[in-house]
Each structure stands twice: as C-alpha cells, then as structure tokens.
Design a protein around this nucleic acid. Sequence first.
DNA 1: CGGCATCCGTGACGATACTG
DNA 2: CAGTATCGTCACGGATGCCG
Lengths: 209, 209
Amino acid sequence: MSRRRSYDQYCSAARALDLVGDRWTLLIVRELLAGPRRYTDLHADLPGVSTDVLASRLKDMERDGLAGRRRLPPPGAAYVYELNGRGRQLLPVLQALGAWGQAELGARRPTDAVRAHWFALPLLRALDGEHGLVEVRLDEGDFHLFVGAQEGPVYGDGPAPGEPDARLVLDVDTCTALAQGELGLADAVRAGRIEVGGDGTLAKTLREA
Amino acid sequence: MSRRRSYDQYCSAARALDLVGDRWTLLIVRELLAGPRRYTDLHADLPGVSTDVLASRLKDMERDGLAGRRRLPPPGAAYVYELNGRGRQLLPVLQALGAWGQAELGARRPTDAVRAHWFALPLLRALDGEHGLVEVRLDEGDFHLFVGAQEGPVYGDGPAPGEPDARLVLDVDTCTALAQGELGLADAVRAGRIEVGGDGTLAKTLREA
DNA sequence: CGGCATCCGTGACGATACTG
DNA sequence: CAGTATCGTCACGGATGCCG
C-alpha cells in the first residue's frame, strides 16, 4: 500500500502537489486527457515508467478521485482508465507547465521518445478560443482535438471519430513555432506551413484568417 | 553531484517536469516569489524539508537558470537566493496548481503548517486585473502584494515597503472563500468581511465596487 | 497476451549531528 | 548562519513471474 507523503502545509498549491506531485502522475494525466486508455497502452506511451509504479499511480488517482477504471463492453473487453471531471480540471496545470517548458524544448535529443498526441496540448493552446473537432496529421502520426470541449476527452489518438470540422496537416517544426508563439496560426496558414482541409466553420475561419 | 533524472520525452510538459518536478522544487519557487530569502528563512518556511535536499534543490535551480545566489551588502551581509526572470515565469504554474488544489483545501488539519504569505497567491488571483501595492493583514501575519508587477518579486513578507495603494484586513476564511470563487471581492467588501484602508486608486476602486 | 505482483539493486529522501 | 556528513528508510526502475 502506497503510503502517501504529504507536505502538511495549509496551502492550496502544496495540497495540489500532495495529489499530483509524485513522479509520473501528471504525465499519466496527460495521457488520459486523450480519453480512456488501457494499462498496456499507457505503459507503451510512458517509456521509462516501471510496471509497479504505473499500477500504483493509477490506484492512487482512483482513490483520490481523479480517474476511474471501467470494463469495456465485449468484444474486446478490457479494463480502461479514464479521467473524471476532477482529473480533467488538471488541463490548465498541464497547459501552464507546457507553456513554460516550451522554452526548454530545443531540438529533439537522440534519447527523447516522441508520440504524435504529445503535440495536442500546444496545438490546443494555439487554437484557444475556437470550437470544433479537428483532425491533425503529423509525420509522427495522427490525432484529433476536441477544441473548446467542456466535458469528455480533450483530445484523442488516431483519426477523428467522425467528420471533423477541420483537418490540419503540418510538421513538428511548425507545431513548435506555434507553441512558442513565434508564429501565429494565421501566419502559418498563409505561409503554407499548415494545410487546412475540411469544410466546417472552423476550417473556413482558419483559411480566411 | 545530483544526477538529473530526465523523462526523456520530446514534450514541453515533460521538459518542465524535468526541471521543476522534483519534490520541494515548486514550493521553493513559491517561497522565492516573495523576494530574496536566506537559506535559514527558506528552511524555516518549508517545514519538513531536510537541509541537504534544500541545498541540493537550490543548487539545481541555480544551475538550471531559475534562481541566483547573491551576497547582501553589509551590514547584515548574508547570502540570499532569488528568482530570476525565468523562475518568475513559473507564477502561472503555481497559480494553476493553487487554483486546482483550492478545492482540496478543506479545514486546516492539526498537522498543517501555516504561513501568512501562503495566502498571497490566492489573493493575487482574486485581485487579477488590478494594479498597485497592497498590504494585507491576517491574524497569521502581514504580507504585501505587488499586484500586476511585471518584474521583481510578486509578493513579500511583512508590511509593505512604503506607502501601499491599499490596505486589506481580513481573515483566513474570507481568503479561502475568495480563492474558491464562492465570494466575489466586491461582495466581501460590501459584507464587511474585508476592511479596506489606504487612499490610493486601488483602495477607492475596491471600496466602490 | 494483458494486467498486474514480487523481488532486487540503486538512488532519493528525511532526521540528526557536526563544522567553518 | 549556512550549509556538509552520515545513516537508515523508502521510492524508483528493471526484470521476472503469476494468473485470468
């Protein structure tokens, strides 16, 4: 049983760190923001985490009311973990961390792992204020964003589950430039660094900008 | 030499956690947002941290470009630690964490330590959009806020270093209610739960609201 | 095979003592 | 005052094994 180590400070930031300050916890939240995931998928997208630590963190998050465990209906019955409302409210924390860390994110190091959906958070920041389902195509893979969604997953792996309001094709460098604010979304579209497809309102907004 | 343990992920949030994800680091940042502090003062306001961990974290933060060490001019020559620009940019991270953790901050537990200036971050959130030097008086002690400051410390311990634009006298419960958004600033003033003193523009704004 | 539990070596952490 | 030294304990990472 994982003995919780509290800071024992009457301070809301310290309380938050009591719950999500352990190693790997916030990165697990980042993964679960992509919707329900199986244990094995989580383990695959969190290279370096040991099996027992992952299991222990998931148990902690369940007990602390951040996530839940659910059995998928057959066929393909398996357990999946998913954030609940309280867990999804950690999005601003990850956004603040990501915005700050963007300046440290230089070139990719040879030891660095990459997953396509890790670019979802920076892109969501760039699309702040918009609304709709966006499919994103990177060389590293595809994912989709529920821009402006109030409930449910914030993004997901793979192609969009239905007709997206916009399709974006871009590369990692453009992603990084957007995230760092060096490049505006409109500029990137105008410069041809983002290919905008689809015919939803959002696609038109992006093309016209 | 503290061997850095990286997540080795090409993701800005993971990079941020490489730098500030270690235990105590973000709480040290919270302390240093109050301006230059001596080692002993830091140790006193971070109950539970061991001396070697505190020394090690400060060294890491210096090496990573978050903070610096400076010798105060005599008399009272001593070393102080202070955040630089990069470190101060962590304010939004602490704000996001604090906003999320506010919901977990119930009643004070008997084991919880308290310091007056730990209420500075929630109050700054409540005063968002304003500007000026604010002196705050709680039963637990006094501190001051540089509301809307672009550089230098964000808040400080003790009375304001000069004539404040406003003086607030309130209690911890009111602070908590403000931080949770249960209570608006204007409502609190109108309900007499905040005593507003001083004759700066900010004081007038608060009284009129 | 997915989903853990167990074991083990290493390093991080916390408490205390001690030193310039 | 500002740390360093020492030490016991626990958390972490890696591997392996078990069980449905």
